[in-house]
């Protein structure tokens, strides 16, 4: 005690006591604070905020209570959203696909109309309407420390399940009736995960029974590895397959060689003099 008592008149002693007091008060507040009640209130607020945004931005197609609107022909003007889950909202609105500019065979992605907070409010509102897939936690799609085995496994899963539509290099592909599978390269891992989980637009749902969360993680790790690896052998020319390669063979190869032939034939011994 001699150590403390001898320094009780130290210039910083008072400051230390005040600091200790503040820490004690803060710690006991956080320990006894009514945490649960506060959270619920936040969710309710979020849902209410989401509903407000929904009514303004989405209800014209999906109905005032997200029940969907059916056209006279029996098609969906906007499909019902009850039970699609927060993940679907996060994907559709977060990638800018929704709100759509017009009804179309397929709604393209564009610059998102809503900020992150608004997206989570909308997601909370839709999730409150019925049970559906939630927005995945980051640990599911975080592939920064994926191992080589996971990437190789993901590659085989990708080629088996995804490449048929999204192409071997993830550059997208054609579907019937003017629809298409969009490119998956350079897409945020969270959105790839949500797309597999919810099956947006033309895409089938790859539920957790079909592709386990671990499978999904590996697929994302493979796509991510394509983004980080070098373009071996030069420009990938858009990764469009042999049709693209054939076009460049004609344009660049035959084009330049025919020009060279013209140049060679027009130059050389007494060129130009004998021209008729």
């Amino acid at each position: 005690m001699k150590f403390l008592s001898s320094r009780r008149r130290h210039p910083l002693a008072g400051l230390l006591v005040v600091l200790l007091g503040l820490i004690a008060v803060g710690a006991s507040y956080s320990a006894f604070r009514p945490a649960v009640a506060d959270d619920t209130r936040d969710d309710t607020e979020l849902i209410a905020e989401g509903r407000e945004l929904y009514v303004v931005g989405c209800a014209s197609c999906h109905g005032l209570n997200a029940e969907g609107i059916v056209t006279k022909r029996g098609d969906n003007y906007g499909p019902p959203l009850i039970g699609v889950g927060a993940a679907a909202v996060d994907f559709q609105v977060g990638t800018g696909r929704m709100p759509a500019q017009r009804p179309d065979t397929q709604i393209p992605d564009k610059h998102p109309a809503y900020g992150d907070e608004e997206v989570s409010a909308l997601a909370a509102y839709i999730a409150s309407l019925g049970p559906g897939p939630a927005i995945p936690a980051e640990e599911y799609y975080d592939v920064t420390d994926a191992t080589e085995e996971e990437i190789v496994r993901g590659g085989q899963l990708y080629l088996t399940n995804c490449a048929a539509c999204h192409n071997y290099a993830g550059s997208g592909g054609a579907l019937p009736e003017g629809r298409y599978a969009p490119p998956v390269r350079g897409v945020e891992p969270r959105y790839i995960y949500e797309a597999m989980l919810t099956g947006p637009q033309q895409m089938p749902v790859f539920s957790d029974e079909v592709l386990t969360p671990e499978d999904k993680h590996d697929v994302i790790a493979y796509i991510d590895s394509l983004d980080t690896q070098a373009n071996y052998g030069g420009s990938n020319l858009g990764s469009l397959g042999p049709v693209g390669e054939g076009m460049w063979a004609w344009l660049v190869g035959i084009g330049s060689l025919v020009l060279a032939a013209v140049w060679i034939a027009n130059n050389g011994a007494r060129a130009g003099k004998s021209k008729s």
């Binding site: 490449a163 048929a164 071997y168 420009s235 042999p242």
Partner: peptide, 24 residues
């Protein structure tokens, strides 16, 4: 100019297929 990036196609597996499967 990259041509026929076989490492992206992977080894032949009859259960797999890729978009843009075209001949030369």
């Amino acid at each position: 100019m990259q041509i026929n990036p076989i490492w992206l196609y992977g080894p032949y597996n009859p259960s797999q297929v890729t978009a843009d499967s075209q001949p030369d």
